[in-house]
Amino acid sequence: MVLEQAKTDKDYSKLVAHIYQASDFDFVGIALQQPYYPFLIKWRFAAGNQSERFRQIVLRRGFGIAGLVFRTGKPFYNNDLSEYSISNKLYTPIASVESLWGAVAVPISTQSGAVSAVLLAGYRRQQIVSAATVSRLIGYLND
């Protein structure tokens, strides 16, 4: 879906910093999947983070926001992330650790179409996210 823009760690770091500075998001992060079994997903880059606890979050494909976006290759957005408990498949540890109320996540894909990373942006306040927010976030990838 989304073009491969960031190819190195430096590019991902610059992308996160640019979106955070140019937008009103309270948190911006990128999760990457390990290239080897068990293909764990970890949040590697962030801006606006409250602590470094986000680095300890480990997900699998299909679980949490990043896992869901990796599995489906489709954007995700939600305005009440607190509704998901730890027993729910959509439990969002990043939302819990970073106190996010609403968030939007989009895949970053390679030219072959495989999802290589997930870009997430969120709010700690009651700011509505929608399909328009998804489009705005994708726009940053195409800058």
Rank of each mutant, 00 (worst) to 15 (best):
A31I: 04
E83S: 13
F54W: 11
I128E: 08
K14L: 15
D26L: 01
Q127V: 15
G139Y: 02
L119Y: 06
A31K: 03
A66D: 07
K89V: 12
I30A: 08
S96G: 12
K10A: 13
G73V: 07
T92F: 00
D26V: 01
A95H: 02
A114T: 13
M1I: 08
G62D: 05
E98N: 09
V115N: 04
R61M: 11
D80W: 10
I57P: 06
A131T: 13
P107K: 01
T133S: 09
R53Q: 15
F76R: 01
V16N: 06
T133P: 00
D26G: 11
V16D: 07
T110N: 14
G29I: 05
G67Y: 01
F54A: 08
A114D: 14
A95T: 05
A47F: 07
K74D: 12
L3N: 12
S109C: 15
T72D: 12
D9Y: 09
Y20D: 09
V106S: 00
Y123K: 02
T72C: 04
F76M: 08
S23V: 04
V115Q: 06
Q21W: 05
L100K: 05
Q127G: 00
L3S: 14
F25R: 04
V16E: 08
P75E: 05
R136W: 03
E98Q: 14
G62S: 07
F45S: 02
K74E: 15
L40D: 11
H18M: 14
A17F: 09
Q56D: 15
N79V: 00
K42F: 08
E98A: 07
T8C: 04
N78W: 02
R61E: 12
S87E: 14
F76P: 01
I94E: 10
Y84S: 03
E4F: 03
L81C: 04
A114S: 14
Y12P: 10
D24W: 05
I57L: 11
Q127K: 08
G64S: 11
K74A: 13
G48S: 10
L32K: 11
F27K: 05
K89F: 12
V58L: 10
V134N: 01
A31V: 06
K10H: 10
V58F: 05
Y77L: 04
D11A: 10
Q127C: 04
Q34D: 15
R55F: 10
V115C: 10
K10C: 01
I94M: 13
P93G: 09
A17Q: 15
T8E: 06
E83Y: 05
L81Q: 03
F70H: 02
D143R: 14
I128R: 06
R53A: 14
R124D: 02
S23L: 07
N79R: 01
V2E: 13
S112K: 13
I138F: 00
F25N: 03
R44H: 09
S99H: 15
R60H: 14
R136C: 06
G62W: 07
S85P: 00
K14Y: 07
A95W: 03
R136D: 09
Y84W: 14
R44S: 09
L90H: 06
S135F: 03
A31M: 08
P75K: 06
A132Y: 02
A22F: 03
R61S: 09
G48T: 04
E4W: 04
P75Q: 06
V106C: 01
Y37R: 09
L119F: 09
Q127W: 00
